[in-house]
Simulated scan of single mutants.
Amino acid sequence: MNVLLMVFSVMISSWALLNILYVHFRESFERRGFKLYYGLVLVYKRSKKIRQSSIVRKISYVSILLFILALIFFYYSMILGLMARAGLVSNVARPMLLIPGVNIVGDHLFYFILMIIIAAIIHEFAHAYTARSYNIRVKSLGFAIVLFIPLAFTEIDEEDAAKSPRKARIATLAAGPASNFILGLLFMYLFILAVSPTTLVIEQVLPGSLADKYGLKPGSILLSINGTPATRDVLRHYLEINNNTYLVLTIINPSGAMENITIYKPANTSLLGVYLWVGPNIVLVKLFGAWFSIVLTKLLYWGMIVNVGLALVNAAPLFISDGGRIAYELLGSRIGHMINFLSLLILVLAVAGP
């Protein structure tokens, strides 16, 4: 919580400083494409000439297929979530609303925001380059920060878009979710390669706990417990032993040295007092060190989560989403409204509640 308060304080102070600088150097900011609205919304917008590309146009057909896959996966995930909520299926991961500061905390918040920015930029560039490949003029590209939430946007010429074939408009809209979907799958593949099922990272040590007492440090990589490869199940097994026992933990400490730490666990203690994160592949640790390997796994994880999440939400017909606009293009206003409302209802029912 102290870390979050510190981060929040830095953000508020930085935003206040930005407001002061903008008031005094407004012309300089606006010459460079920056505008601050009501002291709360920072917008950067620049005109950018994008050349037409036949290669991008050919790729756009693949984008439409990827968009359809993302849409199918959205409905599959939501319906599975509804079935799990109703008790019809078990052992299924239900859709979850990610809330910074609530279920995204610590340094994960930094990686989450970083990947949001990267994903949004790629999403908008995909829209822009696909639009130009169909001879639709792109007026500008830019980004905005609204109450510390980063957004990106592409401003296309609406008259050009209206005159273009329906296929061109659909391909332009589909390009954004498709780019995030393929990027999310790439991050997923790399994440699977980068992590190991038999290592664990100690993210946080609770004050006064067994781990704190015996000197375990955040950023350590747990390799084995009493000679058994470290997994959550193995750790839980030893902690649940209802006798006085010893745990011999083999770790790689934050400095990169390997060491054994012996912990005496009393019979009445079943908690080590640590928060754990999936461990990196030991080959990765040997090549790049403990710190970089842990950072890389977090970047890959949030790259996967953010890009797949943005792809699914944008592919879904949700009124203002890319999928929502495609629904209107294909089905017209009346049926488009119905499909958008139904999709939004499914999403809310799948995500809301305990």
Rank of each mutant, 00 (worst) to 15 (best):
M1I: 04
N2I: 11
S9H: 01
L18C: 09
H24Y: 13
G33N: 10
K35H: 05
L40P: 01
Y44M: 11
S47K: 15
I50L: 15
R57V: 06
I59P: 07
S60C: 08
V62F: 15
S63V: 00
L69H: 00
L69M: 15
S77G: 02
I79P: 10
L82A: 04
S90L: 03
P95G: 04
L98G: 01
L98H: 01
N103M: 11
F112T: 03
A119V: 05
I121F: 15
R137L: 12
V138A: 06
F143P: 02
I145H: 09
L151Q: 09
A162W: 11
K163H: 13
K167A: 13
S179E: 08
S179Y: 05
F181E: 10
F181G: 05
G184L: 01
M188V: 00
L193N: 06
A194H: 00
T199N: 07
L200F: 03
V201I: 12
Q204A: 02
S209K: 07
Y214V: 14
L216N: 03
P218G: 00
P218H: 01
G219Y: 08
G219W: 10
G219F: 12
I221W: 10
I221E: 05
L223G: 07
L223D: 05
N226Q: 07
N226T: 04
P229R: 10
E240G: 01
L247P: 04
V248C: 00
T250D: 11
I252D: 00
S255G: 10
T269Y: 08
L271C: 00
L272C: 05
W277D: 12
V278R: 13
G279V: 11
S293P: 03
T297Q: 01
W302A: 02
G303Q: 11
V306N: 05
L312T: 10
A315D: 12
F319H: 11
I320S: 09
G323N: 07
L330F: 13
S333D: 07
G336R: 09
S343E: 06
L347I: 08
L349K: 09
G353Y: 14
